[in-house]
Design a protein around this nucleic acid. Structure first.
Lengths: 193, 193
DNA sequence: TGTACATCAGTGAACGCGCGTTCACTGATGTAC
DNA sequence: TGTACATCAGTGAACGCGCGTTCACTGATGTAC
């Protein structure tokens, strides 16, 4: 299962991978593929499941480390970036899958993102940071946050992992995006009386 | 050149298209491909150029139709959605290319988005809506706007074009995203004194 | 403890097929004199 | 106006190759008695 990720990490698109290619990378005969997966789509879906685990691990780490509310954004973005670097191939796969060929994979990734957004909403409620917002508005705001971060992900995956200057730029920019969104959230109820 | 777009419109991923497949769709013998393009990447780059034209046309229409500042968001989102529907395949190609195989295509699409963001910044300046923002902050905000809209695009392309209910949901949601961002923009200077 | 059997990941040969790319070609259209 | 030539999109046959998938197989590991 790590073979396709390796190939994706090397710049290939998941949609263009073939069974022989994947098994070759895995150092195994093509026939073995069918012992584990019905076809490439099936493989993709299993990768989405594993992606879910990676995201949950990331979320847990964020929860453990973000203690003060005022550092929330900075810390979270930092954790996100370090996880994205550590699981580059996984996140590349995720970015590709969002506009991918298989509707099922697309849906899987979307649903991971929705889950992520709803967990974020829970956390913000728990921290009592968003008492003035309705559930619907909070959900919308968390969705926007997750999307912005996901888009930053594609920036991050576009630059070399050890280009520290660029990575730092992306970190700063993402942080500012989130700050802006939260400034909007603070003043949101004024707009919808 | 419209043949690959047709295939993308049918749910295929550009990265998985072959020369024979494209020429077959175009109703032409495979050899003819080489009269026009060196390879699939070359084709992709030419599509990016054409995509630029589509975006510019959309921008022009938005400029002509958005006269009152208070309707700016509603109108722009409406125009965006109708163009996205009218050029579905083009925008699918764009969404795919962002995480695609070819670095050159990726860069091309990114640069279109940057151009779009900077034009938006100009327009907002011209309308005197953002006098309190520094150039850097304005640029950041416009970037976030463009990204949010681009992400909504992938939502839109995921639903059937004639599912009016879903399209309307996406329209509303995108509008709210932008409203939130602009509320944040209004109060932004408070945060960075 | 030893024997018999089930399970299952991986093997290797074989298949027919569609792929990208080459080549010399045709035939329509535009250009020069 | 008519003739000669250049340009260029499209043709069709051919090539070698890698693809997905099938099949009967091997050999290691776990389980039952």
């Amino acid at each position: 299962m790590s073979a396709p990720l390796t190939l994706v990490g090397k710049g290939r698109h998941f949609a263009s991978l073939g069974i022989r290619e994947v098994t070759r990378q895995a150092g195994v005969v093509p026939t073995s593929f069918y012992r584990h997966f019905r076809n490439m789509d099936d493989l993709g879906l299993q990768l989405v499941d594993e992606l879910g685990l990676v995201l949950r691990r990331m979320m847990r780490e964020a929860r453990e480390n973000v203690l003060q509310a005022d550092k929330l954004i900075d810390e979270s973005v930092g954790i996100f970036i370090s996880h994205a670097q550590a699981n580059r191939s996984f996140f590349l796969f995720m970015a590709q899958g969002l506009a991918g060929e298989s509707r099922a994979i697309q849906e899987g990734i979307r649903s991971e993102m929705r889950y992520f957004a709803s967990e974020l909403a829970n956390d913000l409620r728990r921290l009592k940071l968003v008492d003035h917002l309705s559930d619907g508005d909070l959900e919308m705001i968390c969705d926007l946050v997750v999307r912005s971060v996901a888009f930053s992900l594609t920036d991050l995956l576009g630059v070399s992992a050890d280009d520290e200057y660029q990575v730092e730029q992306i970190r700063k920019r993402t942080t500012r995006f989130l700050q802006l969104i939260f400034v909007g959230a603070e003043h949101w109820d004024n707009r919808r009386p």
